[in-house]
């Protein structure tokens, strides 16, 4: 039995429908990531699950009961916000203990639990400070601590790392992964960063324009994207989408061919001819950007490649690395 089951969820702001008939099962204790470009409805979906947004229709079934009309606190979820949402006038201790103090629990109990959580998140020495005196990463840990304190059924994360710099983001990503191993709870995580999605998720939900495009494990999405949108969204650099008509590829039934940079070969022979427009050497890998009949194709090169700019090359691929999409972008 799944721990969270969303059925036919619809949501609009005024006359604009932002979520269209969302159906989704989230298994117990799974780590699910909602990913998609900005404005795709992923945050709205998360906030609907949290109970912060009223939905127009549909059910949100938590352990067999529909909670769609229930208040956030009755759903027993905890949420970590993009801005951390720490109360500026309260100390770290009061911030973490807020939920229990709101619930009117005894002071001693709150004190003890806050201490435990602070220990776990290495926040003990900051307990008497105000949020303004903390770094971004510390604030993020306080926000997480506030969520942990309630030992909720699920943790909801709304783009929690987007306000951090790149280095700290990797660090916090690892901490969240570690947190997940320690807690037995469901994690629902919203991000626009596909790297976060790939590294953290058991299951990725790709959204576009208020609709679910595909649900699957990171590797499923990587190897078997359901359509050209998912194909180009997952993976970095992006998958090359080659228009069969433009490139004049004979004997192809598909409208578009998708092939990842790492599955292309470059050299003396191949199906496409082009010139190298740019090369990026990143160390462990390099990428060549090749102009082929007005289209630009990204090709992964070995570290020591010896190619030069303006060089005429041919690009080829193994047939089993190809993804074929029809005119509507659906996988064939």
């Amino acid at each position: 039995m799944s721990s969270l089951d969303i059925k036919h969820l619809n949501k609009s702001y005024g006359s604009v429908q932002v979520l269209h008939d969302i159906n989704l099962e989230i298994p117990e204790n799974a780590f699910v990531v909602f990913v998609g470009p900005s404005g795709c409805g992923k945050s709205t979906l998360l906030r609907s699950i949290a109970g912060l947004e009223e939905i127009d229709s549909g059910e949100i079934i938590l352990e067999g009961r529909d909670v769609a009309k229930e208040a956030p606190v009755d759903r027993d979820f905890a949420m970590v916000f993009q801005s951390y949402a720490l109360y500026p006038q309260m100390t770290v201790r009061d911030n973490i203990g807020f939920a229990l103090s709101v619930a009117g629990r005894p002071k001693a109990e709150i004190h003890r639990k806050v201490d435990e959580v602070a220990q776990m998140l290495r926040l003990t020495e900051y307990l008497d400070r105000k949020p303004a005196d903390l770094s971004g990463g510390q604030r993020q840990r306080v926000a997480i601590g506030r969520a942990i304190l309630r030992s909720p059924k699920a943790f909801l994360f709304d783009e929690p790392l987007s306000n951090l710099d790149a280095e700290l983001r990797v660090d916090m990503r690892l901490q969240i992964a570690e947190l997940r191993r320690q807690m037995s709870a469901t994690f629902i995580y919203v991000t626009h960063d596909q790297v976060e999605a790939m590294t953290l998720a058991d299951q990725i939900v790709v959204l576009r324009a208020g609709r679910i495009e595909q649900v699957g494990s990171p590797m499923e999405l990587y190897h078997h994207p359901a359509n050209s949108f998912v194909a180009s969204f997952i993976g970095s650099p992006k998958m090359n989408l080659l228009s069969v008509a433009d490139l004049g590829l004979a004997g192809e039934s598909a409208a578009t061919l998708g092939v990842r940079p790492e599955h292309l070969s470059i050299g003396a022979d191949g199906a496409l001819e082009g010139t190298i427009a740019a090369i990026e050497n990143l160390g462990p890998v390099s990428y060549a950007y090749v102009d082929v009949r007005g289209a630009r194709v990204t090709v992964q090169l070995p570290p020591a490649h010896g190619f030069a700019l303006e060089e005429a090359v041919k690009i080829g691929w193994a047939d089993d690395a190809l993804h074929r999409f029809d005119a509507e972008g659906r996988r064939i």
């Binding site: 009309k69 229930e70 208040a71 956030p72 606190v73 009755d74």
Partner: peptide, 8 residues
Amino acid sequence: MSYNRKAN
């Protein structure tokens, strides 16, 4: 009383 009722 439920939260929603109290909140109202």
